[in-house]
């Protein structure tokens, strides 16, 4: 998925020195609504992410996570990467989070507040979190620096057979990024087999 996300961002990122073959005509932009949507979802997502780790109810934590992941999907829509957005919804909301909840319900399904969700390792967690933030921030600033996103309508949307962007994702995925894609699927297979080995006693 990170690959997909990177791909979606890469396809949509314009400006700077990067190649911009997809968005040629500059006149139609929607920067203002895009920024409004981004601001709103960013605030909601940050609050949601905060609540994921602070809420004392494990199912509520999962629901807050749902909001965070949904916000990521909305941001992909704003970047006109609908395929990535829908995949985000389908994979994270439709599969991973459902399985989280499913796991919770199969095990304890505790209602109300459970105190044992907390422990005394908060400083360590804070350091780890800040460290991760620093690394990601450095990577983003180093990579994109002063690049500016200009939100221009993707030309060719209006045409009847307009699955251009989805096709572009598929083409890149199955040619340029074929080996990482296959390696990722092997990784998932390993996880699957590992789970079976752990779960089965005989």
């Amino acid at each position: 998925m990170n690959l997909l996300a990177a791909l979606g961002a890469g396809l949509q990122a314009t400006g700077g020195d990067g190649p911009t073959p997809i968005m040629a005509q500059p006149e139609i932009t929607f920067s203002a609504p895009a920024q409004v949507i981004f601001a709103v979802t960013a605030v909601v997502m940050i609050y949601g992410a905060f609540r994921v780790v602070t809420t004392k109810n494990v199912v509520h934590a999962a629901l807050w996570l749902m909001i965070v992941l949904g916000g990521v999907g909305i941001n992909y829509v704003v970047l006109q990467a609908e395929f990535v957005a829908v995949t985000q919804f389908l994979v994270y909301l439709g599969a991973i989070l459902v399985l989280f909840l499913f796991g919770i319900m199969l095990t304890r399904a505790s209602m109300g507040v459970s105190e044992e969700l907390d422990n005394n390792l908060k400083p360590v967690g804070a350091v780890a979190g800040l460290g991760l933030l620093a690394i990601i921030a450095y990577a983003l600033i180093e990579t994109f620096g002063n690049d500016k996103l200009t939100f221009q309508a993707y030309q060719g949307v209006a045409g009847p057979n307009s699955n251009g962007r989805t096709q572009a994702v598929a083409d890149t995925l199955f040619s340029q990024y074929l080996i990482p894609f296959e390696v990722l699927s092997v990784l998932l297979l390993v996880a699957l087999i590992g789970a079976i080995v752990l779960a089965r006693k005989d």
Binding site: V59, L63, M66, E82, F83, A85, V86, T87, F89, L90, L93, G94, A95, V98, L101, F102, M105, A109, M111, V157, S162, N163, G164, R165, T166
Partner: peptide
Amino acid sequence: DPQVGILWFLVMSSIAIYGVMLAGW
């Protein structure tokens, strides 16, 4: 008529699972 049209249907049918699941819990 979004480009990803029919995937929207799959997304919605997986969101609908939440209703059933959370109602029970």
